[in-house]
Amino acid sequence: MKKRGWGSVALNAPYTVWSVIFIVVPLFIVGYYAFTDKNGAFTFANIIELKEYGDIFVTSVWYSVLATVICLLISYPFAYFLSRQSEQSRRLQMMLVMLPMWMNLLIRTYSWMNILEKNGIINNLLAGIGLEPIKMIGTPGAVIFGMVYNYLPYMILPIYTVMSKIEPSLLEAAEDLGCNGFNKMRRVIMPLSLPGVISGITMVFVPSVSTFYISQKLGDGKIMLVGDAIERQMQAAYNYNLGASISLVLMIMIIISMAVMNKFSDEEGGLVI
């Protein structure tokens, strides 16, 4: 390891202090609560109790995986075509992608409640053209849609960034060497864009799997995800210990899935995110 001078230590200090206070210390607090009971005595009871939350973990992961896959399917071709367009058109379209993020997530989700409601905007339109109303709000579909809508930009951005760095000369070379469209995609573009895909997947999956607001508002209080379970324990049931143990397991799951993703991208010769 290279020895670092005092200058770089000093420059790193602000963030180091920040991360110790706001990331490392809280992690230890979560760990402490997860393994203690109400009186502060060491116990595994909270972890054992988690077996009752198995189904909730499965639902959350499943919904988030679906949301992530949908985001990827939408974003990948979009990012590719966007990266091949003129500077001006790219700038405009990127702004449109980012535009919803100028508004707070809570407000965006609240607005979707009105759109997806029984007598909401969509059903009113359907009624206007003589179609039967569709039940949207309160269904898993609405919750997954909420995740896709809110986190889509996090998928588009990293993929677009790597795509726009792919040298056009590489694609020309592939064509010169006899690649057809499909092979060009499979052998050149996909491997080169993989790091962006990996970081996009992480950035969509992680907030989706831990969300609680989207499921509450678009699920009509009928769909309970891990985030809701944690929020309930912390706020309403006032059981920090159980809440912390659910959080801890969720974090470990996320870390494992990120490690797997990173390993995957390593093997393909991509960058570590």
Partner: peptide, 19 residues
């Protein structure tokens, strides 16, 4: 028989004739 369990969303739901 429930449509959902709500707190402040009840305003939206009842005002809009959604429940």
């Amino acid at each position: 028989v429930l449509q959902g369990k709500v707190m402040d969303q009840v305003f939206n739901k009842m005002q809009g004739g959604n429940a």
